[in-house]
Structure formats: structure tokens, C-alpha cells
Computed example of a mutant assay.
Amino acid sequence: MDERWRADLERWGIPEEIAARAPADPWGHSAARFAGRTDRALAAPGGPTLARAGEALPPGGSVLDVGAGTGAASLPLAPAPGELIAVDVSAEMLADLTSRAAALGVPLRTVRGRWPDVADRTPVADVAVAAHVVYNVPDLAAFLTALTGHARHRVVLELTERHPMSWLNPLWRRFHGITRPLRPTAHDVIAIAEGLGHRVRHESRPAPLPRFDRLEDLAESACRRLCLGRERAGEVIAAVVELDMWPVPRDRWFTLWWEPASGPDPR
């Protein structure tokens, strides 16, 4: 199953001849966009991911957030965490998270690097979370094994039901004549975790917010992801309207959780 996952992810790669013409990194992420998500999560904390993490977190317990970004999946647990351990490859996002944690009075330890490469220098925590990360992970079994090994009480994942770039599929066909894959999905993650011996529970909900508030924001993002120059934003908007893609349907978000075999089930 894990090899199928890896092969499905590889099919999401961008052909070299298209990537070579890209004026900007098509896989790049905006720290400002992540920060906006964290601001909204702090202003109105809720949802199953925070609930499943929070109910397994003992008073003064610790949280490991892998792929933490600016802290949307962990900082809203404040003031409960006695310590937040944040792992991310981006120094910019970890710096933003550091300032937010200080403002909330949450003790923070940061580990810069890619999981599970940095697992051996990352402390074990009571609860481990990884939100919107797994579609960037080719070796998912190793990722989940290391994550589970770093959680005393519970592992919590949050992810979209389908690959987060799936909304662009009609535009890939329009501008590049490419048909994008339909897999992997959240159901594949569940199958891989269960194959590792975990008793996985899950629930889903519509994404709490629309992907874009304005067509112009969609066009800016689509141009980057499609390796198009920003001057083609008008063409993208015209295609989106013609293909009846606006407004972009909300993703379905899945929350998955399980307890490590050696730990108690707190529910």
C-alpha cells in the first residue's frame, strides 16, 4: 500500500519541460497565507482536530506539531500545552510561530528540518499532530511510524480528502493538456495507518473557510501552480468562469486519530 502511495504522489509531479518555464516556484507556500490561517484558528478555535488533540492532552502536557507552519493546528490549544515542540523546514514560519507562542505564553521548542529525518533529535510528546502535511510525504509509513513513536497518548492527523491541488485539475487540462491523478486520498492514509497496526478513527467536515475570497486571488495562485506568468491571470479567470469553477467548492477535511500501542486510550 505504501508503494502505491509513493507512486500516486509521483504522478503529481510537474513535467520538467513545464517546470523549466515557471517564473516562480510552483510548489512554494506563502508564510502570510499560513499566518492568516493561524490568526483565524486562534480567533475561533474549534473543529475535530483540536478537539481530538485537546481531549488526549493531560494538564500541562506537551504537543509535538510536525509540519507546524505558523501553528494553526497547535497554538489554539493554549493555554493547555506545557510545551509545544514544533518541527518545520521553513525558518520563516518557525520564526512567526516563535513570536506567536511568546505572545500566548506557550513554552516552545523548535526543530528545523524534515520529518522523519529530524526525529532522532526531537523530544517525545504527549500528543503528536500533523496537519495538511501527508500529501508532501512519499514514504508515509516511515513518517507515521516515527510520529507514533513520538506520542505518548495520541496521534492526530488533519488532511483534505483529496490532494490539495485537485481543484486545479480542469485548468491543467485547459492550459497544458495534462490529466492529473485522482489518488492518493485520505482513505489511502487510513489504509496505510491501519496496515501499520493502528486502530484508526476518523471524522470529516467541510473546510471551515472557502479556498479563495476573490477571483483575483484564485488567478494569482493558479498562475503560480500552473507555471504561468502573472500576466496570464486574465486568461485563467476567463477559463475558470467558462469551466464553471467559481466559487471553488470547499474541500472536505478529514481528522484521523489513534493511540500508540504502548499507551493508554484516554477516551
Rank of each mutant, 00 (worst) to 15 (best):
Met1Val: 09
Arg4Asp: 10
Leu9Met: 12
Trp12Gly: 00
Ile14Trp: 03
Ala19Trp: 08
Ala19Lys: 11
Ala19Met: 09
Ala22Lys: 10
Pro23Cys: 10
Ser30Asp: 14
Arg33Pro: 12
Arg40Ser: 12
Leu42Lys: 05
Ala43Arg: 05
Ala44Pro: 00
Gly46His: 11
Gly46Arg: 03
Gly47Ser: 15
Leu50Pro: 15
Gly54Tyr: 05
Leu57Tyr: 01
Asp65His: 03
Gly67Asp: 04
Leu77Ser: 07
Ala78Met: 15
Gly82Asp: 11
Asp88Pro: 12
Val89His: 07
Ala91Glu: 14
Ala95Asp: 15
Ala101His: 02
Leu104Lys: 04
Leu108Ile: 13
Arg109Met: 04
Pro116Arg: 14
Val124Tyr: 01
Ala125Thr: 08
Asn136Thr: 11
Asn136Trp: 12
Pro138His: 15
Ala141Ile: 01
Ala142Gly: 14
Gly149Asn: 14
Arg154His: 06
Leu159Thr: 03
Leu159His: 09
Glu161Val: 13
Arg174Met: 03
Arg174Phe: 07
Phe175Met: 00
Gly177Asn: 09
Asp188Lys: 09
His202Asp: 12
Pro206Arg: 05
Pro210His: 12
Arg225Asp: 05
Leu226Thr: 03
Leu228Thr: 01
Gly229Val: 00
Arg230Thr: 13
Val236Trp: 06
Ile237Ala: 15
Val240Gln: 09
Val240Glu: 03
Leu243His: 10
Met245Leu: 14
Pro249Gly: 05
Pro264Ile: 06
